[in-house]
Simulated scan of single mutants.
Amino acid sequence: MLFRQLFDEATWTYTYLIADPETNEAILVDPVAEQVERDLRILQELGLTLRYCLETHIHADHITGSGKLREITGCQSIVPANAKAACADRFIQDGEQVQMGSVHIEAIATLGHTDSHMAYLINGTHVLTGDSLFIRGCGRTDFQSGDSGAMFDSVTERLFTLPDDTLVYPGHDYKGETVSTIGEEKQWNPRFAGHNRDSFIDLMSNLKLPNPKKIMEAVPANERCGKVAVSA
């Protein structure tokens, strides 16, 4: 399996490129509109054909590159079930799988950050956690139908039950960290270690974070696969 972690500095967003070296088929997870040229360059350099763009959720902090990439490459756009994105080619359900040569991707419903969020387990060894679980943190739950109780349940019941050596690759990082493990996060993540469901809900309700700078633009655009509305 070819696995690359790519970074958008402006929004602290990780995009993941995963490919099967035998078929040269590739998938991009959470692509960023401003990085489409970079992603296309890497695909060309590595001789890869983009089959899918896969979203963990409808993002509020950046505009997805999936629409542009679909126009250019003919790839399919896949979003989580119940996401408000009628433009998508496919809606992936909890437990559903995407097979691409030797690459096996399983969707794991991890609600809480939004009401239609998926993590993706790659070949049983790498889990792309989106905005549900960060390295020593987690996504916020105070907008987009967020639910702190659902977040706690998703992380502790769906992610922390994976093997401890499963590699954790988040959707964002704000401190320069790139990878963790399930075992590390169970022991050292301050949002979860030492907390029960009630104390986690209380913690999350008192974060008082500012809204993402691009939320008013990003959410409606991402519901249209990255197409920004043109003002009259």
Rank of each mutant, 00 (worst) to 15 (best):
T56N: 00
T56G: 06
A60K: 02
H62C: 07
H62I: 11
I63K: 01
T64Q: 03
G65K: 00
K68M: 14
K68T: 14
K68A: 07
R70W: 08
E71P: 02
G74V: 13
G74E: 10
Q76T: 02
I78H: 07
V79T: 02
P80Q: 08
A81K: 09
N82E: 10
N82V: 05
A83I: 07
K84P: 06
K84S: 04
A85L: 02
C87W: 10
D89R: 09
Q93D: 14
D94G: 05
G95V: 04
Q97I: 05
Q99D: 15
M100W: 07
H104D: 15
H104K: 15
H104G: 13
I108F: 01
I108E: 05
T110P: 08
G112K: 00
H117D: 04
Y120T: 05
Y120F: 13
I122R: 03
I122T: 02
N123T: 14
H126D: 13
H126T: 06
V127M: 00
T129W: 04
G130K: 07
D131I: 01
S132L: 09
F134D: 08
I135R: 04
I135H: 01
I135Y: 04
I135N: 03
G137Q: 05
C138T: 14
C138E: 04
C138D: 07
C138N: 12
G139T: 11
D142W: 12
D142T: 12
D147K: 15
D147W: 15
S148Y: 08
A150M: 06
F152M: 10
F152Q: 07
D153N: 12
S154Y: 09
S154K: 07
S154P: 11
V155L: 09
V155P: 02
T156I: 11
E157Y: 05
E157I: 00
L159P: 02
L159C: 06
L159D: 03
T161C: 03
L162T: 08
P163N: 12
D164Q: 14
D165I: 05
L167Y: 05
Y169M: 05
Y169D: 02
G171A: 08
G171K: 08
K175Q: 11
K175N: 10
E177P: 00
I182D: 01
I182Y: 01
E184P: 12
Q187Y: 10
R191H: 15
A193M: 11
G194W: 13
G194T: 14
H195W: 10
N196E: 10
R197F: 09
D198V: 12
S199Y: 06
S199N: 10
S199Q: 14
S199E: 12
S199C: 00
F200Q: 03
I201G: 02
D202M: 15
